[in-house]
Amino acid sequence: MVETPKVAVLFGFGINCDRETAAVFELAGAVSERVHVNHFVNGDRDLSEYHILAVPGGFSFGDHLGSGRLLGNRMRFAMREQLTAFVAAGKPIIGICNGFQVLVKTGLLPGKEVPDFEQRASLTLNNSGRYEDRWVTLEFDPESPCIWTKGITRIECPVRHGEGRFVMPASSDLDALDASNQIVTRYVDPSTEPGKGITDETLPFPLCPNGSIRNIAGICDPTGLVFGLMPHPEAAYATFLHPHHTRSDVNEEILAEGMQIFRNAVEYAQANL
C-alpha cells in the first residue's frame, strides 16, 4: 500500500503541459516530478521508481512527421522494457493531447493486455484543417474498465489541437473497441441529458471539434490502466478556469470537476500498489 504515490511527468523536446499536469497530481494528493525523457532513455532513471506515468500535452518535436510520432519512436525503441514492466506491474499511465498521440503511435493504445508496440490506430488532422482551442463537453462510458474515469458521467474541458481526429483502418476495429468498452470518452451535445449524450453518429462541428469517428475523444487499453484523451482535463482543474465562471455569483470552491480523473488514479495507486 502506497500512501503518497509518485508520479513521473515527462518533459522535454517540446512537451509543454508538464507543469500543470504535475500540479494537478499534487493537488490530487500525489507527489509529482517532471522528468526529462532522456533520463529514462539514457537509463540514469527508471520508470520503476514511480507509481503513475503521465505523458502531457505539447508539440513534441514540433509534431513534424505527424503528431507524437518522433517522441513515440524514442519511447518505443528506447523505453520498451521499462514501459512493458510498468504496465505489467499494474501501474496507471495517462496521455493527454500530444501524450495521447504519443501513446497511440507507440502502440500502447488501444494496445494489448501485454504491450506489443504495434500501432493500430492514429490521430490525424482535424476535418476543419485548423488547430483550435475551444471547450467541449465529454461523456464517459460507465462500463469502461478505465480506472481513470470511474464515477464520472460528464465534464467540460478544452481541446487544443490540430490533429485530434481518431481513426482506425476498419469499422470492425472500432466495433471491437466499443465491445470491450475501451471507447472511454466521447464528445457530446451539451443540450442532451447527462448520461444520454453518447452517440456513434459524428456530431457536427464544433460539438465534435475534429470530426473524430464516433465522436471518440479518448480510449483505454484492455486493462483500463492506460488511458489517453485529446481534451485537457488538467486545464479544467479550477472553477475559475471555466469560461462561464463569471456568469454566476463567485464560487468560493477552487477545485473543479477536471480533478476527478487525477484523483481516481491517485486513489487507485493508493489501494492497489
Binding site: G57, D133, A235, L241
Partner: peptide
C-alpha cells in the same frame, strides 16, 4: 481561436467569453 490561449492552465479570462464563448 487558433492560438492556444490556455496552456499552463491559468487563463481565467479568455479572449472569448459569454454563453456561446
Amino acid at each position: 481561436r487558433q492560438y492556444d490561449h490556455e496552456v499552463i492552465a491559468q487563463t481565467a479570462i479568455k479572449p472569448f467569453v459569454g454563453v456561446e464563448r
